[in-house]
Design a protein around this nucleic acid. Structure first.
Lengths: 336, 336
DNA sequence: TTGAAAGCGCTAACAG
DNA sequence: CTGTTAGCGCTTTCAA
């Protein structure tokens, strides 16, 4: 399998590799190559099915033209939208996007970052990384700039949602949907996420601040930060039910990933209890919007987040480390 | 920004580049390099933060170690699961997975395939491509093998769901959920997909075969293959409603992407009509499973499909072009 | 207007 | 057991 190279083309066109390269990829204007030669070369390239070898090009230019992103997973509307819009913006800049998912696993994240470095990405976007600073440390010595998305770090600019404000507003919606006609205080739960990550702590803070304003004290053991995975959320609620005897009045769910588990859990409840259960979720999903009239959601502003990411990517100098918070948007369900 | 190379390491270790390369990446057993030298080199590599340049390595080895995949989009449970499992399997084989989404746009697909060729991927998986054969034609001359997934082509082995059987079984479920006590024939609709793609034609065939067996003739103009996008499905149903005056009794929805539009459309119906509407969907989503008791879904067997893909990737010789159909699985909703 | 030649960092063949 | 060397395909400077 012999692939056509610029040498083959040069020979065929009775020209030289340098000229072929200039015609096909470089700015041949500067070299004032004759139009006829340029055309001949382009025709030959088409005929022979020539394709540039980016490996060789990148090696020589010391620029890969690749931009990398790591995300925890794809099968979640928030992250999949992030990946999709990232690719779109990257392509608009003639960059080759490579995105890889790391299952919120620090070991995989590190491995992925090293791979990205090995492939000489020009910039790495670390989305929802468990330890963003570790990734910055891996990349920095190789001149690979990093930007954090969704979860902040201290060594690179971070673009995240305003988790506190979003959670606060969402909690107010939750409180507004609970009517305790008997005057007793409602029981409320926070479910999902990791106590160690910034999103979760801020959302918990928004939740507890809003509940406190409403005169409700949620005990710490009702903040079920059991991880994001659906089965964990479900198990955590099963456990709660075992100890509390009856379901809560309202649940604040941290991410649609956890919501999956919460809904599975709720499906097993008796109809009256299930139907009186109020729920809000930090993250949006179209099917929940269409079918879950009882669930109010917060939609993070992915478009704006990605826009800000590329403002950094585009800027030539390294900017000061910053924390940029983007307001999310409350989306009420159809409330059937 | 000067990055450490094997030359730097060789100088520091008082050795040679070849030896360093062998120690760090190659199989240094074969060269019986002294353990002490190997250790010294490895320590130095760690200290200086050496990272291999895959661009150079790939150029020299004429093997990139990259495997590519194109998918129509990420924000759909079926494709996101495909991408996720693909990455996992690729990594298990020490291949670097790069996946890119092309919005079911033939132009983007072609561009993506050419990029993959330029980066010298060793194999390209074309998922849900509008014209898989075109992509095979782009890749073949460069020695890049292709495999089709989800949508078949004639120039490479294709791994797809058994769309006919799945649609047939799903339609039987749909019929089973409709009771026309007055004895009149129910009106049924097929919504979503493209009449030009194999999945859709096969599913339409499954649908019409099953309805015919049930003694129902669905007129061609009620096969609304208006594209996959949610807004198109919604618009198509609005149009139907305008001409038919009343909603159908049952809808076969082709993909969750279209289902999003169908549910949005249904939300605007009056309650009795909405509640008596039976729906089935070819594709599965966890939130629909949890909340849409009235929707029966078919779950495609992604794990098995990816397994079959890698059986081909792993095999050294080019195998004969084959069409492999994987049975999907019916998932009944919780039927609240 | 164009060609020749050096070299990006790595690997593999060969020579010791 | 280890070093030397050629060359992968491309870009870029310099020379003509």
């Amino acid at each position: 399998m012999k692939r056509t190279t610029i040498y083959d083309l040069a020979k065929l066109a009775d020209s030289s590799p340098g000229t072929v390269s200039a015609v096909l990829h470089g700015d041949w204007r500067k070299r004032r190559i004759s139009v006829s030669l340029a055309e001949r070369i382009r025709d030959l390239a088409k005929e022979t099915g020539y394709a540039i070898n980016m490996q060789a090009s990148a090696l020589r230019k010391e620029r890969s033209g690749i931009i990398g992103m790591i995300v925890p997973m794809y099968d979640n509307r928030y992250f999949s939208t992030i990946a999709q819009q990232f690719e779109q913006e990257a392509r608009a800049r003639e960059l080759f996007p490579i995105v890889t998912c790391t299952s919120r696993d620090p070991v995989l994240e590190e491995k992925a970052a090293r791979q990205m470095v090995a492939y000489r990405v020009e910039h790495l976007i670390c989305t929802g990384a468990t330890d963003p600073d570790r990734l910055s440390d891996i990349c920095a010595p190789h001149g690979v700039r990093t930007t954090n998305l969704d979860l902040p770090g201290g060594k690179a600019t971070s673009i995240i949602s305003d988790n506190f404000a979003g959670a606060h507003a969402l909690t107010e919606r939750l409180l507004g949907r609970i009517d305790r006609t008997d005057g007793t205080a409602p029981t409320l739960l926070f479910v999902g996420g990791r106590a160690s990550d910034h999103c979760t702590t801020e959302r918990v803070r928004g939740f507890t601040t809003a509940t406190a304003s409403g005169g409700i004290a949620v005990p710490t053991h009702d903040l079920l930060t059991c991880g994001y995975a659906a089965p964990k959320a479900k198990a955590s609620l099963d456990e709660y039910l075992a100890r509390a005897a009856r379901p809560p009045d309202g649940i604040f769910v941290n991410s649609t990933t956890s919501l999956e588990g919460v809904l599975n859990w709720a499906a097993a409840l008796a109809a009256p209890e299930r139907d009186s259960l109020a729920m809000v979720c930090f993250d949006w999903d179209p099917f929940v919007a269409a079918l879950g009239g009882h669930v109010t959601m917060v939609k993070q502003n992915v478009t704006e987040m990605i826009r800000r990411v590329f403002a950094i990517v585009d800027s030539p100098e390294t900017l000061a480390v910053e924390l940029i918070e983007i307001p999310p948007q409350i989306v009420d369900g159809p409330c059937r």
